[in-house]
Structure formats: structure tokens, C-alpha cells
Simulated assay, not measured.
Amino acid sequence: MLKALLFDLDGTLADTDPLHLLAWREALAPYGLEVDPAFYRARISGRLNPEIVRDLLGLEGVEAARLIAAKEARFRELARGLKPTPGLPELLAKAKEKGLLWGVVTNAPKENALHVLKALGLRPPLLVLAEEVGRGKPDPLPYRVALRRLGVAPEEALAFEDSPSGVKSAVGAGIPTYGLLTGHEAEALREAGARGVFRDFREALGLL
């Protein structure tokens, strides 16, 4: 029996990836890196910031923190007037009617997550931040923490993700997971373990 819905944040609740791409493009340009959509999908999407700058630039410590802070401040400047992914309000309303729990599980830094949720007018009963649980997606730990806090079994939840990294995290926690085609190809999401893909949440209403 379905008891809970779990959502990724960026690229899932709202199509924020174009804004992240632009912010990363500006942040990495001084280092001679050109960030196009293919590069973003392959090297950045779904990963934790410290991993990204360590992988791309070999940076750690103070310089890495400074770069990340500047990039995220720029993202928040860009992320005003956000709109939810089509069908999300209807899906959440239907979930409320059915008495389902819901929550957000994200690799995003806390300040960004709160900024995006406020911009969308959303107050999830549960917010699990990878930076607070100690490991980020694709590790299943953030989703395991979400299940534990909600008191539901993996098979009693559904997860919605937009990146292969996120899908692997939720599937690794045993949760039936669906992919949103906001940034990655259907094949990549299915290969990561998604049992189905949707263009937006209007196509997911039939799940409830």
C-alpha cells in the first residue's frame, strides 16, 4: 500500500538545471572549462559540489569552498520567479486527499534548497539534505534516512528523480522510482533503474 512520495529537488520539483548550468558556466569559465548541456549532464548533474570541483579542477579546502559559494550565490540570484514542474500542484493535492506523506531528498546545499522551496511556495513535511546525513546521491543513504524518518518501508513509497545519480540512490534504497525527462534521456534513467519516465507530473497522476 502506498504511503509516501519522495521527490528530488533540482530538475524535479522545478526545472532549475538551466539555471545551474549557467551559474556553473560562469564559475568555471575563468578556469578554462566550457560548460555546455552535454558536459553538464555528464560531469555535474546529480553530484555533490565538493565532488564536482575536486573532479574538474582538483580543488579542495578554502579555494573550493569559495568557488562553490560564489556559484551558489549566483544560482540563487537566477532562481527567482521559479514555477513548479507542470502537474506538481495537482499531484501534491491528490496525495493530500489520499493521506499520503511526502518529502524532499536532495544533494543541494541547505541554503539553495530552502531558497527553491520558498520560491515554489512549498513546505515539505520532510527535507533530507545529503550534506547533513553524510553521504550524497548516488549513495542510497539519503533515501534510507527519509524512509526511516517517515516510518515507511521502501515498497510503500514512490520516488521521483531527474538524474541517473538520483535514480540509483532511490533504487538502491529499494524504492520504486520514476524519472522526469527535464535533463537526461529516458534511456539513461531506465539504465539507472527507473521503472518508468514522464515528461512532467501530469503524466504521473495515474500512479496515485
Score class of each variant (00 low, 15 high):
L48M: 15
A192D: 02
R123W: 14
E156M: 11
P30I: 10
A113I: 02
S163V: 04
L82H: 08
E97L: 13
F201N: 02
V197D: 00
P18N: 13
L48V: 14
R25Y: 00
E187Y: 08
L59S: 12
V116R: 06
R149N: 05
R76T: 05
Y143T: 03
G99C: 04
S45P: 01
G136Q: 08
K96G: 12
R74M: 05
D55K: 07
V145P: 02
G174E: 02
P140T: 03
N107L: 02
L180R: 01
Y178P: 04
E26V: 12
A157K: 03
A194Q: 04
K98C: 07
L129D: 02
A204G: 13
G99I: 04
L158H: 01
P84H: 11
E111H: 04
L122V: 13
A65P: 01
P138K: 09
L127S: 04
L101W: 07
R54E: 12
L48P: 02
R25G: 14
L181K: 01
G172V: 03
D17I: 01
P37N: 11
A4I: 08
Y178R: 12
A119T: 14
A204R: 12
V128M: 09
V116N: 06
P109R: 15
V62A: 15
L6S: 09
A153C: 04
L2C: 13
K71G: 10
L59N: 12
K168Q: 14
S165N: 15
A153T: 07
L189E: 01
F201S: 02
A170R: 05
A194V: 01
L117F: 12
L48S: 12
T16I: 08
R202I: 08
L19W: 00
T85E: 03
V104W: 06
K96R: 15
L59I: 10
R41W: 00
N49W: 00
S163M: 02
L207M: 13
E185Q: 09
E161G: 00
D8N: 13
T12R: 08
A79R: 09
R199S: 14
A38S: 12
R199C: 06
L6Y: 07
V167T: 10
L141A: 05
G174F: 11
L21E: 14
P154C: 13
Y31Q: 07
A159D: 14
E203L: 09
V105H: 01
R144G: 04
A188D: 15
E26Y: 03
L48W: 09
A188G: 02
E131A: 14
G174R: 07
R25V: 00
G183N: 09
F75Y: 15
P164L: 03
F7Y: 09
R74H: 14
I68P: 07
L120Q: 12
L9R: 05
A79M: 10
L9F: 07
V133D: 08
D10F: 00
V128R: 02
G121K: 15
K118H: 13
E156L: 06
P30S: 14
L33P: 03
A65Q: 11
L59C: 11
L28V: 10
T182I: 03
L150F: 11
E97H: 07
W24Y: 15
A146V: 07
L141C: 05
G11N: 01
I44G: 00
N112P: 03
R74W: 02
F7R: 13
V62I: 08
L127K: 06
L2V: 12
G46H: 00
T12E: 06
L33C: 07
K3G: 09
R47M: 12
A42M: 05
L21V: 04
